[in-house]
Design a protein around this nucleic acid. Sequence first.
DNA 1: TCCATTTCTTACCTTTAGTCAATGAAATAT
DNA 2: ATATTTCATTGACTAAAGGTAAGAAATGGA
Lengths: 190, 190
Amino acid sequence: MISKIIEHLLHYISLSSDEITAISESIPIQSFSKGSILLKEGEVSKHAYFNIKGCVRLYYLIDGEEKTTFFYTENQFITSIKSFTNRVPAHHFLECVEDCTLGVLSYEAEIYLLKKFPKFEYLSRILLEEELGHYQDMLSTYITTKPEDRYKKLLKLNPQLLQRIPQYQLATFLGVTPESLSRIRKRIIQ
Amino acid sequence: MISKIIEHLLHYISLSSDEITAISESIPIQSFSKGSILLKEGEVSKHAYFNIKGCVRLYYLIDGEEKTTFFYTENQFITSIKSFTNRVPAHHFLECVEDCTLGVLSYEAEIYLLKKFPKFEYLSRILLEEELGHYQDMLSTYITTKPEDRYKKLLKLNPQLLQRIPQYQLATFLGVTPESLSRIRKRIIQ
DNA sequence: TCCATTTCTTACCTTTAGTCAATGAAATAT
DNA sequence: ATATTTCATTGACTAAAGGTAAGAAATGGA
């Protein structure tokens, strides 16, 4: 089977067989069981990941409470960009919410790929532009809507996600406590 | 005087005199008076900007209310990335909060620069990585803190900004109404 | 300088979220 | 299968934010 990663990248760029080989060899595919920690607070992120299957969440540990700020699902790149590119400790955790199949790109492999195939600079730029667009949208959504609206939006645009993650993780992702999300759900149904 | 833009870019990359000339010619410097609208909701963003002097805010018009989601100050790039790169209408406005001096990069000029100097792909990637890092941090801050904490943080880390922008714009940026920000300020002082 | 406009503050009341504790449901492990 | 732990809901109370309206302060022109 042609890798899911290659398939995804072909949406953005054409790839020679050399390039496909290099990518396949540089980004090994690994399985992680539910609950696996990909990155701990205080560690320097050594890998970026491409999510082939499963769900990974990004969370902060603040006063003993986990605050989820992102869920990565199929066909998304998972990067703790500041830690990964600047080699500084991360302030968050990455955890598999489900059993996951991920492409694993080490820092060294990224450097190698970018050096060997300058074309990948273009690809990186395009992917980053897309990712940045998502983040601009998300930040705007946070500033301009209330938790209830964000829940409704998620319910409408991404109902499958709600089936995959526990509600207490969703709650902090929406910016409220689990109790409040429970009340929001109650309010909406009636 | 060497352009502020060149000066800024030299933090990331070395530039030949050819490259400096190309950048200088592709990114003309323009003045905008306070209140100027750089981008309207519904328009396709035709320019990216580099902020040499002044302050530009990004805001949404929602049910007749302006909700500010970003303030761009000196040495920041201003891009409505989704609209600019995908040639689709923006959902927000860009407005000068002060008299501004901006470098203006048209879509065509960006294409030209990237084509003529492949090295700029690298530069773009680095700048985007940095920008994405900021957005990841901001999103996290929004999810994990309350408005009062965000105000205190801004007061500590960027007190000058508070002197430059009206409080009702700051309020929506913090995710509250102007009245609530007024109450937060009162709470803190006492 | 004065007037008009804009911005900020305050008061009152309503709505929503946070906190803490208890209970019930669901998932997990042995 | 049962026991244990984890998760979701609910209630009672507290804290914070929203809505509305009025007035004070600041700003900007003419």
